[in-house]
């Protein structure tokens, strides 16, 4: 039996630490309650009378705005506060392995939360004949978007030893990235800026790139967008942690 890869070792420890505290269960319950509420009540699932999960995915960018930072805020700030960062970085692992391991663990946790929304898929299939390919694309896009949110939270979490500060910073950055492509905001911008400028700003937004997934379109540009947000934010996490250690 060979020793496990350090990325996996770190990810497993991180994931176990979610489930060893009530945080994981509280989060899962709240996530499922909120998705249910937004889909059926606020999203008017039944009144729409169509066999799709549009009213389900519609709310994900907003739901994640608060819930993803709550999952990710402790990732690095807690290591800094407890001093375990010193332990982690004196084990024979490269910093990128630690960053990736912790990120993957939290992403997997979000994936579990997302997977637990499966009753809504069953419901819509019982009631009508939805396009399940579109639903799958929606889930895939939602998971990618959650990863991008999480990577940003990873970065803000590395900036401070205080989880609350990390949470607030993360929400502010994410809010900006959402609003840049949120239709009411772009409509406002168009009044005084050139359409090219508005398009450029909107191209940085989660909304612009999550939209095609909801319609069942998986475009390589949207894939590249989310993956580069993840890549960039994790790289920034590495730079921040290196600067912190260098003093």
């Amino acid at each position: 039996m060979s020793a496990p890869n350090p990325v996996w070792t770190i990810a497993r420890r991180e994931l176990a630490s979610y489930f060893s505290s009530p945080v994981a269960y509280v989060f899962l319950v709240i996530f499922l309650l909120l998705t249910g509420f937004f889909t059926f009540t606020a999203g008017a699932f039944f009144e729409r009378g169509e066999a799709s999960l549009a009213s389900f995915f519609l709310w994900h960018p907003w739901l994640y705005l608060v819930l993803v930072p709550a999952v990710g805020m402790r990732l690095w700030s807690e290591e800094r506060r407890a001093g375990t960062l010193e332990l982690l970085f004196t084990f024979p692992v490269a910093p990128w392995q630690a960053i990736l391991g912790k990120f993957l663990a939290s992403w997997l946790f979000l994936a579990i939360a997302l997977a637990l929304t499966f009753p809504v898929v069953i419901t819509v299939n019982v009631l009508g004949e939805p396009d399940n390919g579109q639903i799958l694309a929606g889930y895939f896009g939602s998971l990618l978007m959650a990863g991008a949110y999480l990577a940003v939270t990873c970065m803000t979490s590395a900036m401070t030893r205080n989880q609350v500060v990390s949470f607030i910073l993360s929400v502010v950055i994410l809010l900006f990235l959402i609003l840049a492509g949120f239709t009411p905001v772009t409509d406002l911008l168009v009044r005084w800026a050139s359409p090219a400028f508005v398009d450029t700003v909107a191209a940085f937004s989660f909304m612009t790139h999550f939209d095609p997934f909801q319609r069942g379109v998986i475009d390589s540009r949207d894939l590249i967008y989310f993956l580069s947000v993840i890549g960039f934010a994790l790289f920034a996490t590495g730079v921040i942690l290196r600067n912190y250690r260098a003093g």
């Binding site: 020793a3 496990p4 070792t9 420890r13 630490s17 010193e86």
Partner: peptide, 19 residues
Amino acid sequence: PSYPDMTVAGFLSFAADMR
């Protein structure tokens, strides 16, 4: 420092894996 949410056995097992 150590991870307070782990058991002693779990923590040592983690350290052994890392090594």
